[in-house]
Amino acid sequence: MTSHRIRALLTALAVSALVAATGCGGNDTTGAQTGASATAGATGTVNVFAAASLTETFTKLGKDFEAAHPGTRVKFNFAGSSALATQINQGAPADVFASAAPKNMATVTDAGNADGAPTTFVKNQLVIAVPKGNPNGVKDLADLTRPGVKVALCAEQVPCGAAAKKALDTGGVELTPVTLEQDVKAALSKVKLGEVDAALVYRTDAKAAAADVEGIEFPESAGAVNDYPIVALKGARNAAGAKAFVAYVLSDRGKAVLTEAGFQVP
């Protein structure tokens, strides 16, 4: 390669980078325009930011919603509630926010980004997840403190960890876990992989993993029920679609899908 060719190549790269950058900007504006023109009725794309524990149920609800409202498309961004709250407050293009905890919803409402007050649409309760067949014979929280029983909890900073702490405090159980996982799915996967003997996870998560784990109900979890609030967002590009989707989640159809997965409806 001669130097001239290298120089030409670099120039070409720089130019194409610029073109790409401007191209992206162009697409964004188009998206905003179509979003704005769709505010008349529930059509167009609805961007839903939902907690990771809603992945299975909301995917199903989204398909049902699209069928019930022809011309709509529901796009999901599933992640930890706090990450979603940060994204929304930093201006991510979201129309609806469904959080796994009121605390993360408060982050969004406090920043003035919600359109109206959030509604609690489901509650979720903790169970003790143990490997299929329950080889350690775990029956209640106290069994988790037995020597040799390795337990994974969620970190206190995430909703399932806060609920676990509350439940353990209620039961007066002092437990030293081997790990504090970053989310409920991570805690559950440690049970699935056999690295721990038990974990405190949501009933819905245990139910979704019924092939590998068993969920054991325990009384202390009643005092640590987690509320899931949902709200349409102020910055929604598709305000009508956002309202329609929230209404659909709160409808009887929505409730049926959610309860089937193990959620409790308020």
């Binding site: 994974a152 996982e181 991570a186």
Partner: peptide
Amino acid sequence: TITFAGNYPGTTQ
């Protein structure tokens, strides 16, 4: 790290 060693203050965090 968080997947293999987990997260516990003082030992793996």
